[in-house]
């Protein structure tokens, strides 16, 4: 059970009680100091579920890689992400594979003193390792950016619907259902085409089709909370609606939004890859996994050099799997459905 800020204040944890805060005691809500319990619960979950621990660690690692991995790899290999090496393709246009060196001038054999490409080169002779790491940055930037916008939108609409109910709830709920009914990718493609390419536009498209999932959760949580006695008490002593929302309801959304957030980010990674695969993502030469996959599959060269497809494909699998495992673990740790009952 979560402790509300007002109840916390009433119990003396926070100096300077507001008028309505003291009412919490009056109405007899029993508050259990929960932060410690939850923290220990989280630790317990992490101890029990090593996979979640690993997922968290890998996520952290991925975030670090997203920030510094690309530039670091480019610095170590000496291969800028967009630099095309003519001698990384043979005369037939086939790129060098993993752990191979560039071709000699005639393109007939690998040059023993040539440059090493750890994960091979792409169809333009660019370093796949460096581009995969830069692709991680692109992917995370878009996915997290899209998730933040979607969650903010979802919270705003979900809280509004859940708290005010009635006609407002009906309108917003129908909007959620209508959005759910549309084929997201198809509409996303149309919208991406209309807006044109670019990172900000992709973030916008993704957030437009990502808000309803958090909105449903937020609405549900808000409805569960709004009729609780301490909300009634707060209302009865004249607490304003914004104060109720910001002090009593929004803090309740922290856990569900954190859990939903990981799922939304994972879904956004796939959405972004899908748009890039279709040529609607970030324009070239910016590295994106979807574009890397598209080049490999569209050209058919993955049949000749599997690394072209394996590298971006594996990156997608790792990131999405990691985020989903993390989301599952966080739900186990944080999502106490009876906490507001």
């Amino acid at each position: 059970m979560s402790r509300t800020p007002d109840a916390q204040a009433a119990s003396g944890a926070t100096p300077g009680l507001a008028a309505e805060e003291s009412v919490d005691l009056a109405v007899g809500i029993t508050e259990v100091p929960e932060r410690t319990a939850r923290s220990s619960g989280l630790r317990a979950v992490l101890r029990r579920n090593r996979l979640v621990t690993c997922a968290g660690a890998v996520t952290l690692l991925l975030l670090v890689l997203a920030v510094v991995g690309g530039p670091l790899a480019a610095s170590i290999t000496g291969h800028p992400p967009n630099r095309q090496y003519n001698n990384a393709l043979n005369p037939e246009g086939v790129p060098i594979g993993a752990f191979e060196r560039t071709y000699n001038a005639a393109g007939t054999a690998h040059d023993p003193n040539g440059q090493l490409f750890v994960l091979g080169a792409d169809l333009l002779g660019r370093d796949q390792l460096v581009r995969a790491l830069y692709g991680l940055r692109t992917s995370f930037t878009i996915a997290v950016g899209g998730a933040i916008l979607a969650i903010l939108g979802g919270i705003a609409l979900g809280v509004t619907a859940g708290y005010f109910g009635g006609f407002t709830d009906a309108v917003i709920s129908r909007a959620i259902e209508a959005t759910l009914a549309f084929p997201t990718l198809l509409l996303g493609v149309g919208l991406a085409l209309a807006l044109g390419p670019g990172m900000l536009n992709v973030i916008l498209v993704i957030s437009i089709f990502g808000w309803y999932y958090p909105a449903r959760i937020v609405r549900s949580v808000t409805i569960g909370v709004r009729n609780l006695q301490y909300i009634e008490a707060a209302t009865s002593v004249g607490a304003s609606v914004p104060r109720i929302l910001f002090r009593h309801i929004l803090p309740r959304l922290y856990s569900p939004m954190l859990i939903a957030g990981t799922s939304v980010v994972a879904a956004n990674v796939l959405f972004e890859a899908g748009l890039s695969y279709l040529g609607l993502g970030v324009p070239p030469p910016t590295a994106t996994w979807g574009q890397m996959l598209s080049d490999a599959v569209g050209s058919g060269y993955y049949q000749i050099d599997l690394w072209l497809a394996i590298v971006p494909g594996a990156c997608l699998v790792i990131v999405v799997l990691t985020l989903n495992l993390l989301g599952d673990g966080l739900r186990d740790a944080l999502d106490h459905r009876d906490s507001y009952l």
């Binding site: 967009n82 085409l193 390419p197 070239p284």
Partner: peptide, 23 residues
């Protein structure tokens, strides 16, 4: 799209920054 990116790189040294718009 790949051809366009090669051209993009080819023109950079002569001072033309080519944006590749794929649709």
């Amino acid at each position: 799209p790949l051809v366009a990116q090669v051209i993009q790189q080819d023109l950079e040294p002569i001072g033309i920054k080519l944006n590749v718009h794929v649709a």
